[in-house]
């Protein structure tokens, strides 16, 4: 059934690459918006305004960033397992990746509620709104990835799952996962590490 493609690259894989191009513009817009809002708030003299340095917790987020980085490693191990026909290894690391992603989301939920209790709700000021919009959009992407991986892992218990035919699908899912990870590295740098700069 699968038709030979002109470039030899699977259609679904190429579609994901195109989507990544599109997503770069999406996150680019969000990051630029965030920088504009942080810049704006820095110029306002108002002791009641909550500023990035007051709420952003670099050590905790470093930990969650580490978790997300490790999930990319787990992703590689999972794909490696499937490509070598080792279903057990694939399954273990596939669920492992999803689990690490879920832990990352847990960190994010913790962070959001912390901010909320410290007075930075969605509507408190534009820095907060831009922060929630940016990291929330990223979190939604991680959630999609987690569900995707859970479906892939769950599917492997069915007889319709064949490692030789379906490893390409995990490859595509992995591409997505790594991309979401790389975007987080950029967000971490811009949102969290820039705070440390004087």
């Amino acid at each position: 059934m699968t038709h030979e493609t002109t470039t030899g690259i699977d259609n679904r894989k190429m579609a994901l690459w195109v989507m990544i191009g599109s997503e770069c513009m999406l996150f680019g817009s969000l990051i630029i918006n965030y920088l504009i809002q942080v810049h704006q708030i820095a110029g306002v003299e108002n002791p009641d305004l909550i500023r990035p340095a007051q709420v952003i917790n670099v050590p905790v987020t470093s930990l969650s960033t580490f978790v997300l980085l490790m999930s990319s490693l787990a992703m590689v191990l999972s794909l490696n397992g499937l490509q070598h026909g080792d279903i057990a290894q694939f399954r273990k690391w596939c669920f492992g990746t999803a689990g690490l992603g879920a832990i990352f989301l847990g960190f994010q939920a913790y962070e959001f509620t912390e901010f909320y209790w410290e007075g930075l709700g969605l509507t408190a000021n534009n820095f907060g709104a831009a922060f929630f919009l940016l990291t929330g959009t990223h979190g939604a992407h991680v959630l999609v990835g987690v569900i995707w991986l859970l479906i892939m892992g769950g599917w492997s218990y069915r007889t319709s799952f064949q490692s030789e035919h379906h490893s390409i699908l995990l490859e595509v899912a992995g591409l997505y996962w790594h991309f979401v990870d790389v975007i987080w590295i950029i967000i971490f740098t811009v949102v969290y590490l820039f705070v440390l700069a004087p």
Partner: peptide
């Protein structure tokens, strides 16, 4: 978000642009 959830990205009174 501005219209429905009360953010102020485009509200100059609240630092919007």
């Amino acid at each position: 978000f501005d219209r429905t959830f009360g953010t102020n990205f485009f509200n100059p009174d609240m630092g919007g642009n």
